[in-house]
Amino acid sequence: MLTYAVKRIGLGLLILVFVMVTMYAAVFLVPGDPATVALGPRATPELKRLLTERMGLDQPVWWQIIEFFRNALTGNLGYDVWSNRPVSTLVLEALPNTLILGTTALMTALILGVPLGCLAVVKRGTLADHLIGVLSVAVIAVPSFVVAIYSLLLFAVTLRWLPAIGAGEAGDIGSQVRALILPALAIALGWIGYISRMVRASMMEVMNEPHIRTARSFGLPEWKIVSKYALRIAIIPTISLVAVGLGGILSSAVFVEAVFSRPGIGKLITDAVNTRNYPVVMGTVLMMTAIYVSITIAADLLIARLDPRVRDVFRG
């Protein structure tokens, strides 16, 4: 277990280095100088030189990479080219909005997805089961940003039930919750389908096990067998799926935040990409990759603890 953990963490650090080196190498390899691209063709040479210096692009590439990691270890991710604010501050300001959005979406998906999966098992083979199956695949397939735009059009623009943009007033929980509903549902919709499908699939395997047969021979009602005895085992693959999927939620958040102008990580990075704000892009990507990689490692270790089959593989 310990060797496994060490290996996973080592791989995670390797990934971070890999990402940053690739990005710097790409900056280096691409023709044209980033300062000119950012400022446009009519910028004065002094302005260009100033910006190049500020982005640290006047140093050799290998030095830039070493410098970046040295600074990153001390919590300094560089400075916003345009506003000169520290990137770490920008990230920390935006992060809570994204994390709240992600966890709300995930919780909603679990609360709705698990019962739906159970219902499909109880009613297996019937029209309800088939319908849940088809709908699950359908909601997985539809892109979350299209769901976001359509729900924005319907609930915010046409019906005016909920706000269209932002994350709500600071300090006003009510308006924050109202601003959270649409984006969270847009992300959650696909996950409801995904989770219900996963719960159904792993539960169908469990339904043939002896302890379920025993429960059934005692004459317990089907819904009780499903919710009490089958779910307990069948939930493990779902937990691992959800833990691994947290990273995928970050991706959906980028698009959904853009639609609802929600000031989170997704909006921060897309704005930075559009204005060619290198330090902000680099810093945010490093932070998000680090978060993503840590979540994946934590999920793998959690699965290794929960699932004896995985645990035994790494015991030796």
Binding site: M23, A26, L250, S251, V285, M288, T289, Y292
Partner: peptide, 24 residues
């Protein structure tokens, strides 16, 4: 396998945005 694993465990969208910033 190490290469596959590290590319696979990248947050795809973050990597994509980084490359797009650089390459246009």
């Amino acid at each position: 396998v190490l290469t596959f694993d590290s590319l696979n465990s990248l947050p795809m969208i973050m990597f994509a945005l980084a490359i797009i910033t650089v390459m246009g």
